[in-house]
Amino acid sequence: MGEPIMTKIKSLADLKKKKEDLQSKIALREKSDTPEGRVIVKVAMATCGIASGSKEVMEYMVDELDKRNIDAIVTQTGCMGYCYAEPTLEVNLPGHDPVVYGYVDKKKADEIIEKYIKNQELVDGIIPVNYQTIEKDKEE
């Protein structure tokens, strides 16, 4: 598969050469999945998160979900108010309420992917969130 010699991407011209390959991969993925079926992972990326290692956690999630063939969108969000438990991330599985995990390192992230994202099996480290009541009061 692919070219025998791996050349490094150094310029936009190099990137352009990869475009068709990327387009066909994306087309393939879109055929097999519906957008509603996508997993969304939001990593809290404010000062508290960044200082605790959320950049590494986010990069790990992007790379690993891709490697494990899970069609997911990994994005960043602001501080959710759980600075004591950073890095935190929120997982949105299609058809499920969002779940927030705290103290996430690579090991925990791996567990979240394998147990929760793949099998909807809850993992230790959930931060109880009640979007309807407590948070609303705090926002006042």
């Binding site: 991407i9 475009k19 994306i26």
Partner: peptide, 27 residues
């Protein structure tokens, strides 16, 4: 400029991220 080159390929594609990182690091 990156978007122009990639056309409909999104910037948040994992492989695109990898390529962009490589491009910046090389330079």
């Amino acid at each position: 400029e990156v978007k122009e080159v990639l056309e409909d390929v999104p910037l948040n594609d994992p492989e695109v991220r990898q390529y962009l990182k490589e491009m910046i690091r090389e330079n």
